[in-house]
């Protein structure tokens, strides 16, 4: 295996890591927003369920969740087409708990008068959330969501355990073939290329928002 081959595999892995991160973040945003909204809903059992969902997934490791989806769900007759899909489902469900916390904090940051005004205009709870609160809460949520996304990018490496051919998987594969360990250092560099600019961006946005509010 030549140096060019090593780079070829690692860059393939980087591409899969990026796709996996974005797809999982999509699932996590959709599910997490729903759960975050349920946390402030007027129906107590729904609030409790949402709080329980967040507490449960924040207190358990990601690895059993991924393996549950990958090895467990087929036993229940649920077969996802590829291990990539299993990883998206597992990472999405897990990260949704962290997104939900951000969404809840964002919703709570909106001034009470806004909610009273929306409700007194005759909006329903979900209209009020969707049309009045979420648009205002969203800007407060961007930096912490960035932090969640960075953690998600790092967590995608755990998908190598369920045979998703992402960056860490490819690095291990290449090392198994070449018996050299420098490819892992290149893989580290590629992770840093994603995470370092992202955390710089998060810091920048945090400073900007602090000035704006």
């Amino acid at each position: 295996m030549s140096t060019a081959d090593v780079w070829h595999y690692l860059l393939l892995g980087l591409w899969t890591t990026l796709r996996l991160s974005l797809a999982s973040m999509g699932v996590a945003l959709a599910l997490g927003t729903l759960i975050g909204v349920l946390r402030v809903s007027p129906v107590p059992p729904l609030r409790w369920f949402a709080a329980g969902y967040v507490e449960f997934f924040r207190d358990i490791p990601l690895l059993p969740v991924l393996v549950f989806v990958y090895s467990g769900l087929p036993k229940a007759g649920i077969r996802l087409p590829t291990s990539f899909d299993s990883a998206v489902a597992g990472l999405g469900v897990y990260t949704a708990a962290f997104v939900a916390e951000v969404v809840r904090a964002g919703l709570q940051s909106v001034h009470k008068g806004q909610i009273e005004a929306a409700l007194s205009l005759g909006m329903s709870f979900f209209q009020m959330i969707r049309l009045v609160v979420l648009p205002q809460a969203f800007r407060m949520m961007i930096p912490p969501l960035g932090t969640v996304f960075i953690a998600l990018v790092k967590n995608t490496s755990i998908a190598s355990a369920i045979a998703v051919e992402e960056l860490l998987y490819q690095a291990e594969f290449v090392i198994g073939r070449t018996f050299a360990d420098w490819p892992m250092l290149i893989a580290f560099l590629l992770y840093l290329v994603i995470t370092v600019p992202l955390s710089g961006l998060v810091n920048f946005l945090e400073r900007r928002l602090r000035i704006l509010f």
Partner: peptide, 17 residues
């Protein structure tokens, strides 16, 4: 929108999950 759940409420929620 004050939603700090009490511990027993969160635990009931975990029970539901």
């Amino acid at each position: 929108m004050q939603v700090q759940e009490r511990p027993w409420q969160t635990l009931v929620g975990v029970g539901i999950v």
